[in-house]
Design a binder for these strands. Structure first.
Lengths: 216, 216
DNA sequence: TCAGTTACCGAATGAGCGTTCGGTTGCAAT
DNA sequence: ATTGCAACCGAACGCTCATTCGGTAACTGA
């Protein structure tokens, strides 16, 4: 026994702080590998402990994931949808997209965690769906708020069209975020601006404007 | 031994036909559960056979998935991007979206299979990325084809903007497909039309048109 | 009818992982 | 210093699942 190997740099943490580290680590690992491929071992490792310690704080992998879904889901909805101040449709769109990109830049793992494919586990999938439906409903509400008195949008009944538009904008924005994370050399402002341009102006006006800038 | 239990309705299939059934079953199961949660047992069951039979046709789960990625990926790119006939930007957008929705309706499992999160396995992920990059590049090419002589789109260099627009359209369309599969009571034509409207006109014009239809 | 091929099966193997449990030791209060 | 609490560890269990392998019987051609 060549000397006790105690000089482990690791000291003990309070339960609360360890819990926070586990949550942060779990967000990362779930975000990177998805629910099924995320292992408690890797989560524990990134949190600086052994796997069994996680069970001092959460009942199961599922419970851990469920907590994070609620936590990050609420935060996202509050801060990028409910936080939008009523105004003209264009202003609301711009503000909401702006808030969203800021959030995503601040906590990329939370974003990736939330917008992965729904986990196979039925209970987790149910909560996942509830969160996503709430987000879609929030955006749809903004859309309806921006279209007073109107009954048909693109030939489709207003509330239905609002949900479809919400889904499409959400997806388009997430697609751009995805691209952005592979091209961080582009500033958030530029990506945000293009996202708003695509959604508000569409390709039609985008092309018109681009052509207009050709002839001095 | 109470009589031989031979009256199994199942007869033997040729290797080729069994292989096809395995491919179809695998597409379904991968589409529904994702790579990690898909089990060879369930694939085999849906193909009418036990798991070990799959290994008479494919070397591994990974190989099976890789084959399907190439197969469905190629088909999708050929039939919804390369098949677009050159024309005005709006015409090309309309045709491409139309082709895509038709494909998706024809083989929903192939669509879901392709557009799931990238599997964790590095080799599978690499092929996944290659396929998706090819699709994005194809759409970006169409976009560039539609913007001759233009150097800046929305303040961003043309080729970069083309890729971003490609990603955004892809994502938005897939988001709508997702919604459509939960609301099949809406006809393909209507969803397609709204998809084109959102992408081409943007919310701005969509609102203008909706408002215009209010006052007779 | 007989023999060879091969589609198909079932049991066994081994690895990975979530989860449990009993013990150990850092830490704080006395 | 001493004691009690609880943060932490490590071994072990059980389960799922991909993959292997040897055998069985359905089909085919002679």
């Amino acid at each position: 026994m060549p000397d006790a190997v105690k000089p482990k740099g690791r000291r003990r943490l309070s339960a609360a702080e360890r819990r926070e580290r586990i949550l942060a680590a779990a967000t990362e690992v779930f975000a990177e590998h998805g629910y099924a491929d995320a292992s408690m071992g890797e989560i524990a490792q990134r949190a600086g402990v052994v796997a069994s310690v996680i069970y001092d704080h959460f009942a199961s992998k599922r419970d851990l994931h469920l907590y994070l879904l609620e936590h990050h889901g609420q935060a996202l909805i509050e801060r990028s949808i409910h936080a939008v101040t009523p105004g003209s449709p264009e202003e609301m769109l711009r503000e909401s997209i702006g808030l969203f990109f800021r959030l995503v830049e601040e906590d990329p793992f939370a974003w990736r965690f939330l917008f992965r494919d729904p986990p196979a586990d039925p209970k987790v999938a149910a909560v996942w769906r509830r969160i996503h439906d709430a987000a879609t409903a929030g955006i749809a509400e903004l859309t309806e708020l921006a279209t007073p008195g109107i009954e048909l949008i693109g030939g489709i009944e207003r509330s239905t069209a609002a949900v479809m538009i919400a889904r499409a904008s959400q997806a388009a924005t997430n697609g751009l975020v995805d691209w952005w994370f592979e091209h961080r050399e582009v500033s958030r402002e530029r990506v945000t601006a293009l996202a708003v341009a695509i959604l508000w102006d569409g390709f039609g006006r985008l092309l018109e404007q681009a052509r207009a800038e050709l002839s001095p």
